[in-house]
Design a protein around this nucleic acid. Structure first.
Length: 577
RNA sequence: CGGGGUGUGGCGCAGUUGGCUAGCGCGCGGCGUUCGGGACGCCGAGGUCGGAGGUUCAAGUCCUCUCACCCCGACCA
């Protein structure tokens, strides 16, 4: 490609709104351009990188036995209704109607479509397992797009869906895990694989592939000693027993003129924070129930875990009015002891979820559902009974991992995800069945696997750049070589043109800078665009009948002959004729 | 959706308490001198001041509404 003809320009000035390195660099170097928030033009340079990433992903997916296909972008809305996802997705579903009024969802993920496709065939156990995937534009009406390509409203995702038996699934999941590890390694990303929450996708477990980065939105914990890694949503930790040997004391009400914070309680009673009971009241809009979370005072509630434990969907904090008028308690003085079973006015049911940490303390203290009144010596089972007992605590840095090491907090960009779906979709969708070896109909055991291509591109830039610009790993660079022609003397032009032709004929992707620019500008652009190798042709080099080569990251250029250039950039492997 | 902020040529900005043909730097076009880490001179093109309505003799500047975008939070590949 001749740079004089390349559409898209580099820019010397930085956009003021670009807070994130990848956003700024990709824009400045002419790879992307914003349309509106969260929607981007991929310019020729950007598309080349995007395509290269797709090639790497495809190679490893195919090697893992997955098969590529393409699904429609407009999904019949009935399919989403079949799985109740018109209301429960984490992202806003975008809808369109055709001229007859038939409604479609703009695809944001395609589990229903995959199942619908598969059930159109007569599948036998002999066909299992199989894994189908596509690269396609996904639409998500994100509440807030941000960070350039990191979080957008339209993006290409590789999404794969596996179908098989429960017994087969373990291997499929592992194959995808391994394929992902190989993909991100080839793309130059070091990823941590962390256990995470399935969220609206459904299923029981999943893993995120996270590229460590300060700009990332995922918070997770690792135990370097054991390799334990889990997203903050699901991270668990060991809890030490406190005063479990203490004799149970009689519960007694006391006056408590205090503020409403945990600290106020600690001060008033002069007792440790851990012995206080923390009560947090939520309301689930989906099931119209109150959820009272009870936890040891030195821990915080993890809402994701709470949602799982309470089988809730859409938790919000209860309002002061609800606490007082509907449930007859008092903000800051809530207690599980004799807590209302139902809202007086609303009739909404209350369920009490206690954290396992309550088993590590005795004779706890806390509110009494009345203003300025506390209870001492509260004990689980004797004084109140939980409806659900679970781990609903939020992990914090420094806590003890399940394997005994210390939890270290990290931040990263979630570039890929693998989900176990189990029977989630085959239970919800009719006919998601195959015929087993005894002729009986059986439900599919499924998984799904996503990689955001554009986000991966941004993550690579986040991981590979310096003060001058991007440093693309060779596997995905838009061009392998940047060829600068300095000067326009006929012999320089001829030498540069010839080198460009020769390399191109050997299938080396060359960006030939034939512009009438000064050397400084050309070098700055080459660095900004991050092309792995830089070649220079000038009077100085051709006077010695040589060319200058420099890798993007090395400081020292080398003067070499044309044969050496070709050997470096288009090596002929031994044995090849 | 909640909180904070910004909208003036492609990019970065200035524009005082309302006042004349709306400026500056970069970039862009032409000519000339230059040419190994973003040169210089001269000439030139390019702006419904986000949009609508209002106040006023007069609005980029004041008022109302609205839209877009950015940052922080709830959500994700």
């Amino acid at each position: 490609m001749r740079m004089s003809q390349l559409f898209g320009k580099t820019s010397k000035t930085e956009g003021a709104d670009y807070k994130i390195a990848s956003h700024r660099l990709l824009t400045q170097a002419g790879f992307i351009r914003e349309s509106t928030a969260g929607r981007y033009y991929l310019l020729p340079l950007g598309l080349r990188v995007h395509d290269n990433i797709i090639k790497v992903v495809r190679k490893h997916m195919d090697a893992a036995g997955a098969q590529e296909l393409v699904m429609p972008t407009l999904h019949p809305l009935e399919l989403w209704q079949e799985t109740n996802r018109t209301t429960t997705t984490g992202f806003e579903l975008m809808k369109v109607a055709d001229r007859r009024g038939a409604e479609f969802a703009l695809g944001g993920t395609a589990e229903e479509m995959a199942v619908d496709l598969v059930r159109k065939f007569n599948i036998s156990y002999k066909d299992l397992p199989f894994n189908i995937y596509q690269f396609s534009l996904k639409f998500r009406d994100e509440m807030r797009a941000r960070g350039g390509l990191l979080r957008v409203r339209e993006f290409v995702m590789k999404d794969a869906y596996s179908f098989g038996t429960e017994a087969q699934f373990k291997q499929t999941y592992q194959q995808m895990w391994d394929a992902y590890a190989a993909i991100f390694k080839e793309l130059g990303l070091n990823t941590d694989v962390v256990a995470a929450d399935n969220g609206y996708i459904g299923g029981e477990y999943c893993h995120e592939f996270v590229s460590e980065s300060e700009t990332g939105e995922s918070r997770y914990f690792i135990d370097p000693a054991s390799g334990y890694a889990a997203h903050e949503d699901v991270a668990t930790f060991q809890i030490e027993n406190k005063n479990v040997d203490e004799v149970l004391q009689e519960m007694k009400p006391v006056e408590a003129k205090r503020g409403t914070t945990m600290e106020d309680g600690v001060k008033l009673h002069d007792m440790p924070l851990w012995q206080q009971i923390k009560d947090v009241l939520y309301f689930d809009e989906a099931t119209k129930r109150y959820v009272l979370a009870i936890i040891r005072g030195d821990f915080d509630v993890n809402e994701t875990k709470l949602i799982q434990a309470a089988k809730a969907y859409d938790l919000r904090s209860a309002t002061e009015e609800e606490i007082r008028d509907d449930l007859g308690s008092e903000p800051g003085f809530i207690s599980p002891v004799a807590f209302a079973k139902k809202g007086k006015k609303s009739g909404h049911e209350v369920i009490i979820v206690t954290d396992r940490s309550l088993r590590t303390i005795r004779n706890a203290y806390g509110g009494a559902n009345k203003k300025d009144a506390d209870l001492l010596n509260i004990n689980i089972d004797r004084d109140f009974k939980p409806d659900v007992e679970a781990d609903i605590a939020l992990a914090q840095p420094g806590m003890k991992s399940p394997d005994g090491g210390e939890l270290i907090e990290k931040r990263g960009i979630e570039v890929g995800n693998i989900f176990q779906l189990g029977y989630h979709y085959s239970n919800l969708m009719n006919g998601a069945e195959y015929t087993d070896d005894s002729g009986k109909r059986q439900k599919y055991y499924m998984g799904c696997y996503g990689i955001g291509i554009g986000r991966t591109m941004a993550a690579i830039v986040e991981a590979h750049h310096d003060s001058k610009g991007i440093i693309w790993p060779e596997a995905i660079a838009p061009f392998k070589v940047y060829l600068a022609r300095l000067g326009d003397e006929p012999q320089v032009v001829e030498a540069a043109d010839n080198l460009y032709k020769d390399l191109t004929q050997k299938n080396v992707a060359v960006l030939y800078d034939d512009r009438d620019e000064r050397p400084g500008g050309k070098f700055a652009d080459a660095d900004l665009m991050g092309i792995p190798y830089r070649l220079v042709v000038s009077e100085r080099t051709i006077s010695e009948d040589k060319f200058e080569v420099k890798a993007r990251q090395s400081a020292q250029p080398q003067l070499v002959t044309k044969e050496e250039v070709i050997e470096i950039l288009a090596p002929t492997s031994k044995g090849q004729v």
